[in-house]
Design a protein around this nucleic acid. Sequence first.
DNA 1: CGCACAGGTTACAACATTGTTACAAGAATC
DNA 2: GATTCTTGTAACAATGTTGTAACCTGTGCG
Lengths: 116, 116
Amino acid sequence: MTAVQAERMGAMCDSARTHVNELLVLLSKSKMLHILYILNCDPKPMRFSEIKKSVDSSSTTVTRRLSELEAHGLVKRTAYPTVPTTVEYTLTKDAVSLAPSLESLFGWVLDRADKQ
Amino acid sequence: MTAVQAERMGAMCDSARTHVNELLVLLSKSKMLHILYILNCDPKPMRFSEIKKSVDSSSTTVTRRLSELEAHGLVKRTAYPTVPTTVEYTLTKDAVSLAPSLESLFGWVLDRADKQ
DNA sequence: CGCACAGGTTACAACATTGTTACAAGAATC
DNA sequence: GATTCTTGTAACAATGTTGTAACCTGTGCG
């Protein structure tokens, strides 16, 4: 598995390398893993305010992250013309395929936090 | 799995929450996942210059990341009194338990980069 | 002598990110 | 008429992060 991945990385052309880098930069932004994780925890669509409360950041930052995720096709944004506005966010199919990795990562983080 | 994790997060005390946050901030720093990944790719100790070349950052940043990882007990640093200095880095046992998650994450990233 | 080597450290300037504040929309409620 | 609600956006100051250039160790080599 590891060796196969290393080979893949070695054989990659420049554009693929760029994409890998882009994705890593995206995932490394503050609160990004957290947002993806909580969107994954519950299969039902989440509202902006729920996400904001859960990650504990300013709305500016949450907005930025969500739109970055949307731009990369990992999150789907649906706005309803209610008053006041209602907006829901869900993970796309692509992002759902990331879920097992995220769960595994968070499992490790939680285990490690327990031990401290 | 997901529900269990959500429950664990909900039941966490403040100090555990702090630890989770700390770990997520640590893992979200630029090049951090990359460094952990390449340290994991090869089981043998890696030298500073190899790591630096692989992640393509300034030595300042690589040094910072490696010492942050060492401070969190994820990386072990061994310096040999040769001339010029030789320094080797290896993942600790704790970090090795993170490997499957990282491999899974990178697998997703590589798959996704392929499709672009 | 003077430079090269590996693996850093330090100071500092340039750049990026974050939070804060103010504002918007438009119906409902006091 | 003022205020509340949600989901943002824009401008800006404060803060954080990064790279660059200079420097360090101590031996070997020309």
